[in-house]
Amino acid sequence: MARPLHLGRSSHVWDVRIIDEADRLVCVSRVTMAVLKTPGRY
């Protein structure tokens, strides 16, 4: 499961949680991504 914590114009922060088949939490991660403009689009 992943959910956004912040969705800005230049960066996004996501909370990612991985669970196993027994519905136990296996991993928690926070991901920060840069948002870049696509060349030629406005």
Rank of each mutant, 00 (worst) to 15 (best):
S11Q: 13
R17M: 15
I18V: 15
R24W: 10
S11M: 14
H12I: 00
R17L: 15
V16W: 04
E21Y: 07
A22P: 10
G8S: 06
D23Q: 15
R3G: 03
H6C: 06
E21I: 07
R9N: 11
T38F: 06
C27R: 08
L7Y: 01
W14A: 03
V35G: 00
V28C: 05
V16I: 14
S11T: 09
P4T: 08
S11G: 11
D23H: 12
V31H: 00
P39W: 08
D23F: 13
A22H: 15
V26M: 14
V35S: 01
R30C: 09
Y42S: 11
E21L: 12
R24M: 15
K37D: 08
I19R: 14
Y42C: 09
S10E: 06
V16P: 06
T32D: 07
S29E: 02
M1P: 11
R24I: 12
A2K: 04
R41M: 14
V31N: 01
H6M: 12
I19V: 11
R3E: 09
E21W: 07
D15A: 12
S10R: 03
A22V: 10
L25P: 06
D20T: 04
R41D: 11
M33A: 15
A2H: 04
H12S: 04
S11I: 05
L36R: 02
D20R: 04
A22Q: 15
P39C: 08
V35F: 00
T38I: 15
S10F: 02
R9D: 10
M1R: 08
M33E: 10
R17A: 13
I19S: 10
M1I: 08
G8L: 05
H12E: 06
D15Q: 07
R17H: 11
R9Y: 05
K37R: 13
D15K: 05
L5P: 01
M1V: 10
V31Y: 01
R9M: 11
V16R: 00
I19P: 01
G40C: 03
P39L: 11
I19L: 13
S29H: 06
H6V: 07
L7G: 00
I19K: 09
C27S: 14
W14N: 02
K37V: 05
A34H: 02
A2N: 07
S29P: 00
H6N: 03
C27E: 14
V26T: 12
I18G: 05
A2Y: 05
M33R: 01
L5H: 02
C27W: 09
A34L: 15
V13Q: 00
D15T: 04
V16D: 09
R9W: 02
V26F: 13
R17V: 10
R3F: 08
C27V: 12
K37I: 04
L25Q: 12
R9A: 14
G40N: 01
A22G: 15
L25G: 10
R41H: 06
L25V: 13
